[in-house]
């Protein structure tokens, strides 16, 4: 898609993949960070990680099984958090532990069998190993995430302000919440091969957290977070590949550094002088 800008095919594909993964994750990340349910991020990433590990173990497509596992978690997460009458974070903690255990079990077993090469890529990501179709799928989910936010902007705004107040106002909160879960499931599964299960959480949370230091409106958050995520990810991919550095960890460190700077210079945290 961006070959006219970046002639080197490998770098071009890596940049495209990082760009689309970062847009999808950061747009959805604004919602989960504002709803204080960012643990959905690491639960979903580990569900995808567990699914992919199982898929690789059984010799089927890791991406397909990652999507399947994340969708199953998404499907049980909503009803379970309502039925169990426990905080969503507690449910997520339980599911996260279970998914991590499944992933570690299969990765360890594959290491024992001597077939763990692909599984370790799931942990740390591999930005140059993507098929063209996977990049198209990432572009598709980015577009769907943006469309979802645009169509349901007012409902999403009300829900992230206060879920109970939104429900009392007559907004159908549940369908929006479930749609969000399913989109996160697909986004993290498709991004798993690029960024890796251990780092994907950074893409979901940190761009939104950086944007939050500067934005005073929800609209501003939805515009800034993908812009920040896209810029840092593209720069990280380009710089990492140019200098043969691991792209995912390099970009994650850049995000974290940027977050620290953002907190330090945030105008929202400025204390007025005098008086």
């Amino acid at each position: 898609m961006l070959e006219f800008l970046i002639p080197n095919n490998i770098i071009c594909h890596a940049v495209e993949a990082m760009l689309f993964a970062s847009i999808a994750c950061s747009v959805l990340g604004v919602i989960i960070t504002q709803m204080s349910i960012s643990s959905i991020g690491f639960t979903m990433t580990h569900a995808a990680f567990a699914g992919a590990s199982v898929g690789i173990f059984f010799g089927v497509s890791g991406t397909a099984t990652a999507i399947l596992a994340s969708l199953i978690i998404a499907a049980i997460l909503g009803p379970l958090s309502e039925k169990a009458r426990m905080p969503t974070d507690t449910i997520l903690g339980v599911l996260f532990g279970m998914m991590m255990a499944i992933a570690i079990f299969f990765v360890s077993y594959m290491q024992y069998l001597g077939t763990a090469v692909n599984a370790s890529a799931l942990l740390f990501g591999n930005v140059v190993s993507l098929y063209r179709e996977e990049i198209y799928a990432l572009a598709g989910i980015s577009f769907v995430a943006i469309l979802f936010v645009a169509i349901f902007a007012k409902e999403i705004t009300a829900i992230i302000f206060n879920r109970k107040i939104a429900e009392a106002a007559g907004i159908r909160v549940r369908p929006i919440y479930y749609a969000l879960l399913f989109m996160i499931a697909i986004s993290v599964s498709l991004s798993l091969n690029i960024i890796g299960g251990l780092l994907l959480y950074v893409w979901l949370v940190t761009p939104a957290a950086i944007a939050y230091q500067f934005c005073t409106t929800v609209r501003g958050l939805f515009l800034s977070a993908p812009l920040i995520a896209g810029s840092v990810s593209v720069a990280g991919a380009w710089f990492g590949l140019q200098h043969s550095l691991p792209v995912g960890p390099l970009t994650a460190v850049a995000f974290s550094g940027l977050f620290l700077i953002a907190v330090l210079i945030s105008p929202k945290r400025r204390v007025p002088k005098g008086a």
Partner: peptide
């Protein structure tokens, strides 16, 4: 630090 003004919150009452 929440990104919601009073005007935003009051109009939300109409969203349902």
């Amino acid at each position: 630090l929440a990104p919601f003004t009073v005007g935003n919150v009051v109009i939300m009452g109409r969203y349902g």
